[in-house]
Design a protein around this nucleic acid. Structure first.
Lengths: 247, 247
DNA sequence: TGAAACAGTTCCACGATACGGAACAGGAAA
DNA sequence: TTTCCTGTTCCGTATCGTGGAACTGTTTCA
């Protein structure tokens, strides 16, 4: 909560993330003098965080930020690296497998395999869902720093179905269980008739990079005798992917 | 080149983009006093650009930057949206189709279709290539603001094959031609025996969002009589995708 | 064709603000 | 315990960012 100029620079970046704007519009938007805005933009341009569309024209976000996050390549490489493991899981279990990450405090689905079956599972790719209601979300949450876990649990927790666990204490217990087991089952807690199991892809420092999951219609998945085996299979695939990514 | 604190904040972000670091390491890395680093980090944490791994522990990049760029969802949605168009092109022309964007002044390949054929084209997904030597690069470059075009042409231009055009003036002529035609052909200029044609996916303000391309082995692609038709086909697909993205 | 109205950029004296050395607090290792 | 690391806070100093006003160039309208 210090360093005024940094705070203001981010105000500008956030404003520009909506749409490209000129100095004047921008100075209205953030209630700062034009000269201040122009100077900050010049500084941001030197860092490639913004670019000027034409000489003497409006500004838009540059790719300096993407360079820093490595998002374009990072995420893409993750998808590429994960795909073989997803296909392997699908081949072995004949159910849909998927890949997700945390984005803005939610689970974000990056990729999903498909199976030929009469019963189709919808493709969640590109969708967000609450961390507490999906298997991927639970394994991601379980390996987050404690303060971020608490920030998530402090929010109102939506009950997506009648089986969704929304009691923070119950979830905390569950997260501990997930950490010791290495995988998480979720039974019809996000949408009815859909069960899923997930395991975390952890970085060297123990933080979650992503989650792998398998999901299938409740009437056939999982075979109760195989639930544990499926959990181990996802966890094994996730660990192989983690080893590959941190190599 | 003004606003010291913004410049320093980006130094820190760049250092952290390599690996998570503590205040002390960081202050060595960027040659700034610890107190200054701690204060800037506090400011960046308030913006969610960095997060502290544990209380009193090291710092790593947060997802505030990703929120701003919208990179995770943006890029992913682009791939999802483009895939049907790529498949359509592959079905129609029986050659490989691909999707790329500009990242850090290079063409970055996001996705590519596959065909069953004796002659395999390698999958460029996740690779970078110079803008002036590939069809996608040329169409992206052609619709960039002029100053960025010139920045690109001012660099030493690598001759990837004996047919690569590296004369800036010749490239400028070519870019003008690309803008009027709507597509670009490149004949064995990036790798030998590989030809490709690309068209730009333009945003409402005329800036390039991405490029679609088709590529095939030189001995069969393109049929000289159909080169123009293929160009129009890619351009049409790119325009449909653009319309869909800006809707 | 002029002039008015708008854009983005530059200037510069002022003083609020970021700076950084030194002291502090708390954990881990010896 | 003592020591030696962390990361954090303090606070006087002067550097650095600030913002009103002046400047420049392009577009718009009479």
């Amino acid at each position: 909560m210090a360093v005024q100029s940094v705070e203001r620079a981010f105000m500008l970046l956030r404003a520009l993330s909506q749409e490209p704007l000129g100095v004047t519009d921008l100075s209205d938007r953030v209630s700062l003098p034009k000269s201040t805005v122009a100077r900050l933009l010049a500084a941001l341009e030197a860092e490639n965080a913004v670019t000027q569309i034409a000489v003497g024209g409006a500004y838009q976000l540059g790719d300096g930020l993407i360079d820093i996050t490595g998002a374009a390549s990072g995420t893409r490489n993750l998808i590429t690296a994960a795909r073989p493991h997803l296909l392997e899981l699908t081949d072995a279990l004949h159910e849909v497998a998927g890949l997700s990450i945390i984005d803005s405090g939610q689970a974000y689905y990056l990729d999903q395999t498909h199976i030929s079956s009469d019963i189709q599972i919808r493709d969640w790719t590109g969708e967000y869902s609450p961390l507490h209601a999906v298997a991927s979300g639970l394994v991601l949450l379980a390996h987050l720093p404690v303060d971020q876990q608490e920030k998530c649990l402090a929010q109102p927790l939506e009950a997506c179905t009648q089986w969704t666990v929304v009691d923070p204490d119950a979830i905390r217990d569950r997260l501990a269980q997930v950490r010791s087991l290495g995988y998480a089952w979720v039974y019809e807690e996000f949408v009815e008739d859909l069960n899923s199991v997930a395991a975390p892809v952890l970085s060297e420092n123990g933080l979650p990079l992503a989650a792998l999951h398998i999901q299938g219609p409740a009437y056939r998945f999982p075979d109760p005798d195989l639930a544990h085996d499926h959990g181990l299979a996802v966890a094994a695939a996730a660990n192989r992917l983690a080893a590959q990514l941190t190599a």
